Amino acid sequence: MSLIWEGLVHAVQLLFSADPEVLSITGLSLRVSGIATLVSLLVGLPLGTLLALGHFPTRRFWISLVNTGMALPPVVVGLAVSIFLWRSGPLGDLRLMYTPTAIIIAQTVIAAPVVTGLTLAALQQLNPRLELQLKGLGASRLQIVWALWREARLPLLAAVMAGFGSVISEVGASMMVGGNLRGQTRVLTTAIVLENSKGEFAVAIALSVILMLLAYLINLLLTWVQQRRLRE
């Protein structure tokens, strides 16, 4: 218990002392995970909509692929991205390995199937007659999609929260493609692993508290938006 208490006290000290290294690590964590979530939304929302509303022969195959992707182990994603970004890999000339961009790519691969799958589920649970009614009223394809998104906006916001949650707490892929370099690619999760391996448990607990607080505040904001829309 004393170790946990020491970690909590240290977390408060780090927060109120505005430690430059902690602020840098926290800022990088928020930036890479935020960008990865945004890119995942830009990919997953239209893809999930296509799978939900489209009718084509291989549709079930792609849906099963997306559902499998929702359970991708981060270390497998890290390995795959590393192979592509390594010097001898197809994208090696871009020199993205051990950069924040590499972490964003890996986290996008992790979050995109989550957003896609939950978007698909959100649209599939809508009444099929709604799409028929919109077509009968002469709505264009784009207008139909927009109306369905508005109707399913609450579970779609939940998809965004799930996507963000899957990457802000991820460590395996970030460690493999980012390298946990101090001042460059070290994020909260990789910093926690490092401090734990060094036996600095109080610091690890403090960083864990900051990570949980950050995740809570972001999800609190998204929940406020979600519930506010519920009252509209």
Rank of each mutant, 00 (worst) to 15 (best):
L45P: 07
P46K: 14
G48A: 12
G48H: 08
T49Y: 01
L51C: 02
A52G: 00
A52L: 00
G54H: 00
P57L: 08
T58K: 08
R59D: 01
F61L: 14
F61M: 13
W62R: 05
V66N: 01
V66H: 01
N67T: 02
N67E: 15
T68E: 07
G69F: 11
M70C: 11
M70I: 12
A71D: 04
P74S: 14
V77T: 11
G78R: 13
V81L: 05
S82Q: 12
I83A: 14
L85T: 06
R87K: 14
S88E: 15
S88W: 07
G89Q: 11
L91M: 13
L91V: 07
G92Y: 11
D93E: 15
L94Y: 14
L94Q: 14
L94V: 12
T99V: 08
P100V: 10
P100N: 05
A102V: 08
I103A: 09
I104D: 05
I105Q: 05
I105V: 15
T108E: 10
T108R: 09
A111F: 03
A111S: 12
A112W: 05
P113A: 06
V114D: 02
V115M: 10
T116V: 13
L118W: 04
T119K: 00
L120G: 00
A121L: 04
A122G: 09
A122V: 04
L126F: 06
N127I: 02
N127L: 00
N127H: 11
P128Q: 02
R129S: 09
E131C: 01
E131S: 02
E131T: 06
L132R: 11
L132T: 11
Q133N: 06
